[in-house]
Simulated scan of single mutants.
Amino acid sequence: MIGFYLHSSGEVLGVIQIMSVHFDYFIPDWRTYMETIGYNVLVLVREGKVKYEINGDEVVAERGDVLFIPKSTRRSGANYMDSPHQKHTILFKLDTGLSTGIPFLDQGRFIKLKIANFQYASHRCERLYEEMRGGKSFRSFICLGIMQELIGLLAREMEKPELAPMKQKYAQIVRTYLLEHYREPIEIEQLARLIHRSPNYTTALFKEVYSHSPIRYMHQLRVMEACNLLLNSDMTVTNIAQYLGYYDTSYFFRIFKKHSGMSPTEFIIQGDQSQLFP
């Protein structure tokens, strides 16, 4: 268990103790039985769907959804429609005698929302999972810093005004196209045609919903795929660059370093994808 103090203007606000961090990877017949939990739970769903019963209400969470399940909740969970899912789960306790300044923590209320910067949050959860399992120096400081960041990101998301359903629909159309075609040459004009809007409107809309421009999101997807290929294939850096649509290898190096903080060569030597996107 790892604990730390949250500070604001030098004032001690509260203490969080990380109990455990889990990564559920498509577990058949996954379930957790009904109980009143004595800790808080933060869940980020990466793939598929998961079903919870929260104080008598059914909640279904899918890719991109974040759940905060507070202490003393009566909760059970299972695969949705018997289909396995992939998710990160963080169990932690909070000193209830002190205020954190984070409304959903202090009020102890259940929340469910779709986080805008899903890929970044996923990588932070991966890093936390790896650090909790390892024994590297300064592990506790790193884990606690990541946990604080995740809570802060969630609190910030909750402050945003609710987006109009049509905006969400348009942004999702563009995002789905990018997920399916990120290796291909993509121009903002062709994305704009998907939703019959101007290029400037399309860029601003996507950034409002997902916190990045469509083109930056495309590069992130490419870099994530490059990392997988660098670690899990025999392809050369040049071949990977061309496979992902970068026909100038030096440009691929610049993009990779911009989004990962290191060169492809440095990444291969390090060999740890959890260190990406700090």
Rank of each mutant, 00 (worst) to 15 (best):
T249L: 03
P185S: 01
M132P: 14
M224F: 13
Q168I: 13
I195R: 01
Y129A: 08
S198M: 01
Y217P: 04
S140D: 14
L191T: 00
K167A: 10
Y201E: 06
F118D: 13
T238G: 09
C125G: 06
F252I: 00
S213R: 11
L244C: 00
K169F: 14
G152M: 05
N228L: 07
C125R: 02
C143W: 07
R175A: 09
Q172M: 15
N117V: 05
R175C: 05
K169W: 13
G245F: 02
E208K: 09
R124Y: 11
N228G: 14
Q148S: 15
K136W: 10
G134S: 10
R127H: 10
L178S: 02
M218A: 09
S250N: 14
I151D: 02
N232F: 13
L150V: 05
I188W: 12
L194W: 05
E157S: 01
E159P: 01
L150D: 04
M166P: 08
M235T: 09
M132R: 06
Y120W: 09
D248S: 10
R222N: 00
Q242M: 08
V174W: 00
E130P: 14
R222I: 00
I111E: 02
L221M: 02
A164N: 14
A241R: 00
Y251R: 15
E180D: 13
I142D: 05
R197W: 12
A171E: 05
L191I: 01
L221H: 02
P165S: 04
Q168S: 12
V223E: 01
G245W: 02
